[in-house]
């Protein structure tokens, strides 16, 4: 499933069981469980999915099926500073694509990847609702508006 092997600590396993229990171990609550698990771990590695499957008494395949269906769930750890570029239509027509290209080039990673040092990860999202500021880039929770390709370096510098 995933090439990253994770050793879960005892307390992590306990936390996962607690999350499942707070939803009465009901299979119908799978998505809510996954949301909370991802909030806790930052991502959903195979090992986490296996425990959830066992607790909710469903197959790992079913958990994996749900995790991979929804783009919000990720099996790769995000960088310390996750960068998301809005590629909604409004940002697209105001040049978001060029900003993505420049970020890919500057970080030397593709969309959906994390830099080897774990510092930045790059993703695209659809419309954050700040179309007045298009094109929009988010680093963590911080929103940068009216970003142009040559402004990318300045943004990255803030996090060095």
């Amino acid at each position: 499933m995933s090439h990253i092997k994770v050793e879960l600590k005892k307390e992590d396993v306990a936390k996962l069981k607690e999350i499942c229990k707070s939803f009465n171990n009901k299979p119908g609550e799978l998505i809510n469980v996954l949301h909370q698990a991802q909030t806790h771990f930052g991502y959903l590695p195979a090992e986490v999915q296996e425990i959830i499957a066992r607790e909710l008494n469903i197959s790992v395949a079913k958990v994996y099926g749900v995790v991979t269906f929804y783009t919000f769930f990720t099996m790769i750890p995000k960088g310390q500073h996750p960068i998301s570029v809005c590629t909604g239509t409004a940002c697209y027509v105001r040049g978001a694509e060029n900003v993505v290209e420049e970020l890919k080039r500057a970080l030397n990673i593709n969309v959906g990847e994390t830099t080897p040092d774990g510092k930045f990860s790059l993703s695209c999202l659809r419309c954050v609702g700040a179309c007045g500021l298009a094109p929009v880039v988010m680093v963590g929770e911080k929103v940068y508006g009216r970003v142009s390709p040559d402004g990318v370096a300045d943004i990255l510098k803030e996090y060095e």
């Binding site: 119908g28 799978l30 998505i31 809510n32 749900v66 929804y70 783009t71 919000f72 999202l125 659809r126």
Partner: peptide, 19 residues
């Protein structure tokens, strides 16, 4: 929701709510 456009479609939305 967890970021899937098709979940706006009502039958898909219902399945998503069912987990």
């Amino acid at each position: 929701g967890a970021g899937a456009f098709v979940c706006g479609e009502e039958t898909a939305l219902i399945h998503s709510m069912e987990g």
